[in-house]
Design a protein around this nucleic acid. Structure first.
Length: 491
RNA sequence: GGUCGGUUGGCCGAGUGGCUAGGCAGCGGUCUGCAAAACCGUGUACGGCGGUUCGAAUCCGCCAUCGACCUCCA
């Protein structure tokens, strides 16, 4: 099996990945809070961990991939008066909270499918695991790491920090946290400003509420991930992923909760993807540069010059390393679009290349380079660079400047299918399954091109150019090759 | 203010103590009735100042600058 190294945020080093159980991997990734449409920011962790998921599967692991749906317990702010995001949205849109959850869960799944992100093995919801969360809170109280005040339960960071390194993941020192913690409203119930809520007492106007040993309430926002990850992956599991923005306090809190519940660390490898910026600025609702995935796909946003195919977005993200920040701009996306086309052209040529008795290209070396890149902390940009090197070779063989044996061609085809389709999860953007009439439609275009060819034979350039120009105006791209005219629909 | 991470050619974006990243754009060429597309070839680089070294864009120090987190955020 390939030797994969991954950057572990806990040690800030690349480490050889060794799963707890041979051949099996347990991976948990923080999913979306479903109170709004998925945006570009959601695509980054989804694609990052989809790549990891796909690569682990490709190199032979059985993977249980758990990605949660947060549908409760995420407060709009950390004050006691904070409203649940889902409940707030429900009030604004005059819908049941679970209607909100359903609408945006459906929308998220649709967008993920468009990006060719594989569904996880298990997609648990916070509201479906209230019992598990209550049990976890009970354990933490019993272990002496949590306390109840007025029907709410808080994690006692000070007590925890006496014997455990709170801040180990985010590199924070507890003393600094004290001096830098902001004064928020409603801190009076907590023993310390650092303490975070495990269970919140529900005020009468709260619509999402459940009974608990501490009265009617709802779970705090860090608890669900601890309860659900350990329920499905065990008390200790291999990989925990998420966005860098969740490092503190969310993942730090998860580590503390895990120790409080089980007496030991629950996660071996913490993996974090970096953030996306737009024209150098962080994406945020208040900055007005917040672009939803649907808006990318339709081009319907003031910052977008055109619509972008989901595969362009995917390819664009894979061209940067997951731990680097990635800046979005129309120019960068259009460059990615062109590059992606180039790669797909090579994929198409690969299907029927002419073979020869000898190869003037080294498939094994190319293959080694590609896997080395992936094994080095999922270096997808390097992988793609090697795939472009290969594309150049494929073009050269096609032009007759290089040769390939039949055996090497099979190997090369396998390599590209494995890496481009299976691991990178790219697919030709022309494959739009919603276009049911595409075959008939294609035949019509062919017919027009035959008429144009007849005109060309008669040197009737007026007619031939008219057909070509009108088709171009309709959005078709006509390519004249030695074998005749070829066409495709520009997106 | 604290912590962490960046600063690479026109743009995006890798990587490395000495050996071509790659893509896009540009330029030149092939193909074509003309185009378009495609393909081939090709230049420009490592924020500033010091230091270590035979050699640094790559290591160290200082400075400048940008960003992230510290509060919900993917």
């Amino acid at each position: 099996m390939e030797k994969l190294t991954l950057h572990n945020t806990l040690t800030r080093k690349k480490e050889l990945f060794v799963p707890i159980h041979k051949d099996h991997v347990g991976m948990y990734v923080c999913g979306p809070t479903v109170y709004g449409n998925a945006h570009l920011g959601h695509a980054r962790p989804a694609i990052t961990f989809d790549l990891l998921f796909r690569y682990l599967l490709h190199i032979g692991y059985k993977v249980r991939y758990v990605r949660n749906i947060t549908d409760v317990g995420h407060l709009v702010n950390d004050a006691d008066e904070g409203e649940d995001k889902v409940a707030k949205k429900a009030k604004v849109e005059e819908l049941e909270p679970m209607e909100i959850v359903q609408i945006y869960t459906n929308s998220y799944r649709k967008n993920m499918a468009q990006l060719n992100v594989l569904p996880p093995s298990i997609e648990p919801t916070a509201s479906g695991h209230i019992i598990e969360q209550i049990e976890a809170v009970k354990k933490m109280i019993e272990a002496g790491f949590a306390y109840e005040t007025n029907g709410s339960v808080y994690f006692d960071v000070e007590t925890y920090a006496k014997n455990h390194p709170y801040g180990i993941l985010s590199g924070r020192k507890i003393e600094d946290l004290y001096t830098n913690t902001r004064d928020l409203d409603g801190q009076n119930e907590k023993r310390s400003g650092l303490d975070f809520a495990l269970w919140k007492n529900a005020l009468p106007e709260h619509i999402m509420r459940w009974p608990s040993p501490w009265g009617i309430g709802f779970p705090g926002w860090h608890t669900e991930c601890t309860a659900m990850s350990t329920k499905y992956l065990g008390e200790t599991f291999d990989i925990h992923g998420g966005g860098l923005d969740l490092l503190f306090p969310h993942h730090e809190a998860e580590i503390a909760q895990g120790v409080a519940c089980f007496g030991h660390a629950t996660v071996n490898y913490w993996i974090h993807n970096n953030m996306i910026t737009i024209n150098g600025q962080k994406m945020g609702k208040s900055l007005g540069n917040f672009i939803q995935l649907d808006e990318f796909f339709t081009g319907n946003h003031p910052l977008l010059e055109k619509a972008y195919n989901p595969m362009t977005i995917r390819f664009f993200m894979l061209q940067a390393h997951y731990r680097s920040p990635l800046d979005f701009s129309n120019e960068a996306l259009q460059a990615a679009e062109k590059g992606f086309e180039r790669l797909m052209n090579a994929m198409a040529l690969l299907k029927n290349l002419k073979t020869a008795d000898t190869s003037t290209l080294d498939v094994e070396k190319l293959k080694r380079n590609c896997y080395d890149a992936l094994n080095d902390d999922l270096n997808s940009p390097i992988l793609i660079a090697h795939l472009f090197d290969g594309a150049k070779m494929i073009n050269s063989v096609n032009d007759g400047n290089m040769t390939i044996t039949a055996a090497d061609l099979v190997k090369l085809q396998q390599l590209y299918t494995d890496l481009v389709y299976d691991v990178l999860g790219l697919q030709p953007s022309g494959d739009s399954p919603e276009n049911g009439n595409s075959e008939l439609f294609g035949q019509m275009v062919e017919l027009l091109l035959i008429l144009r060819q007849e005109a060309k034979t008669k040197k009737d350039w007026t007619t031939s150019d008219q057909i070509r120009d009108r088709l171009t105006a309709l959005g078709f791209e006509i390519k004249d090759t030695k074998e005749g005219a070829d066409w495709k629909l520009k997106n």
